[in-house]
Amino acid sequence: MKHTPNQIPRSYLDKTHTYGRIWMVTALALLLLAPTFISVYYDAWPRLGEFAKGMLGVAPIFWVVAVIEVFTYAPMLGAGGSYLGFVTGNLTSLKVPCAINAMEAVKAKPGSEEGDVISTIAIAVSSIVTTVIIALGVFLLAQLTPILQSEALKPAFDNIVPSLFGALGVVLISKNWKVALAPVVVMTVLFILIPSLTSSVSVLVPVGVLIAIGAARILYKKGWL
């Protein structure tokens, strides 16, 4: 089948959407089955008032974040990567950087068919490895807990974000530093001035994206890119 590099053939893409929808709707049903099972099996349904109170502490922020994440990450991950990544979760700190790294390494552009397949492979492998590691950890908990929770290793796990985003950042920023300048400066100043924003980093991702797109548009229109 002949196609230009930046166009995904309809048949492949259409099938991805069809399969993706089937898998995702089934996953949704299964996920809802877990709390339903708990309620039926132990004959313990939540009381409406307490449930609503609990949801009020979560939904206003996380529903908004979930909606924004779809629009922010789906274009980066491609169709296959999105159908898989949004089911397996841990997008921000794991699946998205993993997909970006894979696409960068083989020079596949996001939004192209190459980008779509590479992102899907990276996310699938990452999901399988994550699931296996967590499962191993769960079944070997007694043996692993003292090692994983040791004071000696604590700094390493406390510093995953700078270790990951430092390396990833330098690759992407060096390619497009003009676009990166505005969001990086704004975000750095924001976090230094308001350290309590740490817990709201998911909300600040789309803010950073909007600043980056705005800055990019201005630079592009002025012919500086």
């Binding site: 996001p110 974000v161 985003f165 976090f191 991702v205 600043i211 797109i213 990019a216």
Partner: peptide
């Protein structure tokens, strides 16, 4: 596309500070 990536990364680079 790169603006999307850079916007996301900027939030985490800011978080480091």
């Amino acid at each position: 596309m790169s603006a999307l990536f850079l916007g996301m990364i900027s939030a985490f680079l800011g978080l480091v500070f």
